[in-house]
Design a protein around this nucleic acid. Sequence first.
RNA 1: GGGUGCGUAGCUCAAUGGUAGAGCAGUGGCCUUUUAAGCCAUUGGUUGAGAGUUCGAGCCUCUCCGCACUCACCA
Length: 528
Amino acid sequence: MPSSPAHGSLARGFFITYERKRTMTNEYTPLEQTRLEKLHRLRNMGHEPYPTRAARTHTSQEAIRAFEALETQGVAEPLKATLAGRLRASRGMGKITFAHIEDGDGRIQLFLRANDVGQEALDLFNREFDLGDFIQASGEMFRTRTGEITLKVEAFHMLAKAVTPLPAAKDEVIDGQVVRHATLEDPETRYRQRYADLAVNPGVRQIFRNRAAIVRALQAFLDEHGFLEVETPILQPLYGGAAARPFVTHHNQLHQDLYLRISFELYLKRLVAGGIERVFEIGRDFRNEGVSFKHNPEFTQLEFYWAYADYLQVMELTEQMIASVCDRVLGRRTVTYQGHEISFEIPWRRLEMRQGILETSGIDFAEHTTSEALAAAMTAKGLHPKPNATRGKLIDQLLSDHLEPTLIQPTFLYDYPRDISPLAKSKPGDPLMVERFEGYVAGFEICNAFTELNDPLDQEARFIEMGRDYADDDEERHPIDEDYLRAMRYGMPPMGGFGMGVDRLVMLLTDSHSIREVLLFPHLRKEE
RNA sequence: GGGUGCGUAGCUCAAUGGUAGAGCAGUGGCCUUUUAAGCCAUUGGUUGAGAGUUCGAGCCUCUCCGCACUCACCA
């Protein structure tokens, strides 16, 4: 990049043209122009605004802890430190300036005095440095009159000039409580410009630290229980394993349409057929559906499959796994979610799905074995059954409308109707029901599991039966995965299988009201 | 996709159909232990975009864009 004149139109013109070509951004705002002029002045004075390297010796908290340690030991020798971070507050008071910088650890105060750095440098700091700039400062640690551990700056320089001001956010400490003023709140700006959100809203960073810890805790738990972590194709020639519309893409050279996976199920069960008795995957699923506070088009799923186990054993492993995650990540098993005290202590409540629906809606679906009969019973109760719905969908409607909202404490709903569970094994002696459970917390579903169907003839019949419920052009109609049937015909051991929305678990453990809060870059419509 | 609501300065928010404002941030000045520092002065707006009604529109009407909530969809 050529060196630029201080603050002429030539310099600005250069930058604007460059930016427009690259990103089609608009012109710089007046606030940005002010900062660009500072940038050019710094450069003209020989202060590189974007030096190649930093040289910090301590993070903010390391410096504070090291100072406290020396203080307790009564060491007279002052602690020298070079700190680096983002300028978040600056209070100029004539011949001295107090400032705070923020790094990955937290905040620390800087104290700049004309006596120490020189009047010229102090003026440079006050005139050309802005909130949001990344800077480096060296000096000795001390305590101010009010007791705050502070760096008495002897030398400082810019590490990266911020051209665009951060959305203002100031903290006030009242009786030990941090009160934030004019924080960035607009959800659209927060999600579109997550970098700005992360920079000014510390709670956001904590959510994603917790998210990473939750995923690691799940991996550790399953690893300790003998499950092998694998990665299966995201681009699939056929999709399956869930009721969802897929995203379609195309491989040019192979002249082949491909689907982004909607679940891992059929691939992971192929692996069990191949002899991997305990297997799991944590990864991204893609579903071409509407968005809501609990749905994003791409989301993170955990699935595991466990040979020779059934859904009851999976149920027990599930509550152990969640408790283990709570222990590792939070150090406790109770959380507050949107005002509800929720306990993940073992065991969770177990409720037969039929019984739960009977209690909350007054309808026993077992007494109505056809969709017509069930719809009539619902109408008789003053409910509004969806027209032309299958019996399974009507039961699902009763579940979501009446039962689901009541399931605040962790609850396993078990035994589901066969016609909404084409991959689950029937209950012995009850051909209409399958061995399946779903875990509900805070009124929404977080996991889904069953004793897996391993009878290739039954599976083929279910696929065909399922296909009959849809017209040929119905988008929900699923293709039959012949290769999966072949894998099953080679022999597939009995097994329990499990799937969980990791984002929803993160929501629960971070008290987030929307899935978008726990996704770094949630899906939004295109800007403009 | 439907319904409801919202969109005003960089951020958070005001403004009966009648001159678009405040705090913070910014700019200039004073200030050597402050911490939402303070004090004085001051800049900043095509009120999301476009059209219409009106003497006059941030406000009323319509279209579009975006966001939120909600419904539909989600074996």
